[in-house]
Amino acid sequence: MALLPTNPQWRGLVLLAIIIVVLGVLPWTVNNYWLRIATGALMWAGLACSWNMLGGYAGYINFGQSAFFGLGAYVTAFLMGDPFGLPFSATIPAGMVVTALFAVIIGAPTLRLRGAYFAIATWAFAEVLIQFASAMDFTGGIGGIGLPPYLNERFFYFAMFGTAALAYFLTWALFERSRFGLKVKALRDHEPAAEAMGINTALVKLQTFVLSAVTASVFGAIFAYWVTFINPKSVFGGDITDQMVVMVLLGGLGTLWGPAIGGVGLFVVNRLIWMYWGDTAFYIAILGTAIVLVVLFLPNGIAGLFARRKNDALDKVMDKLVGTGAGGHP
């Protein structure tokens, strides 16, 4: 007997409901240590989702996404400190506006580039922000900037959970279920042909870039308030973007749930290695091995394994093993 409904849509809804319920009760079932890991996992799942909007759906590989994460973090830190002393909730929209402005200014010229040229341009932008934040007094320079502490792990857990849920809902609604998503995917697959279909590709790319950037900035704002101290490397660092890229590639580029799978999976593995070995250098080796294996054997990422394909051998195997009723569905 099947454990889940055989109708793919109902099966998806039931799985989603189970995930939401589990995540909703999690803070009352684990200690603070694991709650912090769960909070981080949700943040990375959300950040990977933000990167996937442009990198996965539009096909523009952005190596400067940490710039927007950092902008959100710095705007929150700046506005919560002296002399402004604004409440946290008021700093988020401010960070979104600042990030959107930067995204338009940077995106308008750089989105004319493609491939490695675009990747290098965005990477350079993040590097410029590191140098800027390191040199300026109002950002606290290289020493960084502190925020008023708020010691409520559940608040940050639900802030990350809510933002990640919203990011995935937006991705589903805009990229999977709307005309806008068709335009974005069309330009990814063949930009001149998309232009020939009347699609203003420059505008659609810019809209996607801004959405992706603003999403990352919200996570940056929550992160800054959560950790209570930031410096240029901790929020603008290139390794932040690198992780997002790897998470999306592992999970499934241009898929809805791939970034969640990659984000949660890699972050939890990272924390477990740190917990048992206390040295994350081993994590880099595992990461490298995982990338090689995925590139060789799972070019569509882990999410690609679950893609519905007629006569898919995996479906038949899964059907026999766990009775999902997946086998034979188109």
Binding site: A186, P192, A193, A194
Partner: peptide, 9 residues
């Protein structure tokens, strides 16, 4: 001349 389809769609 060479079909310019949206291959992944």
């Amino acid at each position: 001349q060479i079909p310019a389809l949206f291959d992944n769609m």
